[in-house]
Design a protein around this nucleic acid. Sequence first.
DNA 1: AATTATTTTTAGCCTTATCTAAAAAAATAT
DNA 2: ATATTTTTTTAGATAAGGCTAAAAATAATT
Lengths: 227, 227
Amino acid sequence: MPIILKSMVTLSEENYLKAIYHLGKQGVNAVSTNAIAEKMDTKASSVTDMIKKLAEKNLVNYIKYQGVSLTKEGRLTAASVVRKHRLWEVFLVEKLQFSWDEVHEVAEQLEHIQSKKLVNELDTFLEYPTHDPHGDPIPDKDGNITKTDKIILSQLQVNQRCMCVGVNDSSADFLKYLDKHHIALGTQIQILSKEPFDESLTIKVDDVVINISKVVANNIYVKSQTL
Amino acid sequence: MPIILKSMVTLSEENYLKAIYHLGKQGVNAVSTNAIAEKMDTKASSVTDMIKKLAEKNLVNYIKYQGVSLTKEGRLTAASVVRKHRLWEVFLVEKLQFSWDEVHEVAEQLEHIQSKKLVNELDTFLEYPTHDPHGDPIPDKDGNITKTDKIILSQLQVNQRCMCVGVNDSSADFLKYLDKHHIALGTQIQILSKEPFDESLTIKVDDVVINISKVVANNIYVKSQTL
DNA sequence: AATTATTTTTAGCCTTATCTAAAAAAATAT
DNA sequence: ATATTTTTTTAGATAAGGCTAAAAATAATT
């Protein structure tokens, strides 16, 4: 029986796998070199180099000029990194006094800590959370996520009620905007009217009426309360 | 007024500073290249290269062929890494279910996470611990440690009573040995006799009489109970 | 004091991950 | 169908951190 050594994955490789994982979840079959380069804020030539290395390690399927997709092993590795990232985000918000716009940068570092026991114990300590502070699902040990049926706020009809369950943009600027208007996970929102010209929405948040742009409405995930 | 940019210190540089910090605490003025190489499990030539870089950044004082010592800035950087290492060790033992022989490896990774807020909040969350699970002192924000008067168990006289307050060797093997004999921080120990031939000790630990070698006795720190 | 041994430094090479510039392939437009 | 644009890959360079082997400096011995 051959000894299978789980090949070492470097920090940089983990980041590439994570980028491909996120880009691939948009229902795309193969992810393009340029898309990865843009996401990673690097050059296409660097991406090609790394892709070759990942293909060599059987973490991605790669055909020249045709983009990449994750192998089963690559997907599991990426999911493990995402799992750690989101668990740490929960830790930072729930146990330390971080707000949801402060966690990303630190979680980007913590997600690379290697220790199975650490992840398992952290999961237990946090009482097995299923979602991170932005409403994103936390993959389980096998990389599976229970996807919830969330829709984009801008797709709701006038007069519908809903609850905020996530955000599509987790940038600090956007999250601070939401804080300013008292929109958080669990907040009740009602669509009062939609402006035909710019598709901005007038909504009611906790009895306060505010106006939000289409861009904002496109980045808030909600669960419809009435159908 | 000039803007002072706190120069970036890489992970590798942090590890070298930490090694010099620990080696320098033995009352030695300058730390030798070979000593660093041995501690870091690397070659002397690599150490020389790194030392030059650290000297360039004003983190160490370096005179060719005469070893290195930390500058004020270098010592503060090293102390900050040690502070993080020991705080994380407390976290792992107190909050997650790690035992004291399991924390080192993970803390070696966690000590490099960069976030002032994280360290401060962790410190608060842990209720400002002063010592790590091995009894080593945790430097404060300014790198200061309150040194306690501990002595090595082997230096006690026969019949003296004492309390275990730390260990000199934090290897997993040694810590497991202590676990096996129910010696932990706070454990009461009484010296019953000392064998002249090999300087082994017969001691009483919680009403159990055991024999420990000189090597073991040299690696247990205690606080004398009677004088 | 001169020789030997040890320590430290230098010089040159390797790997990883990045870059720029140029070449090749694929996609798009005329 | 050919020409043009865009995307992707290749080739060659660079910086960080490490190595080996050789040279230089210091320490130890006779």
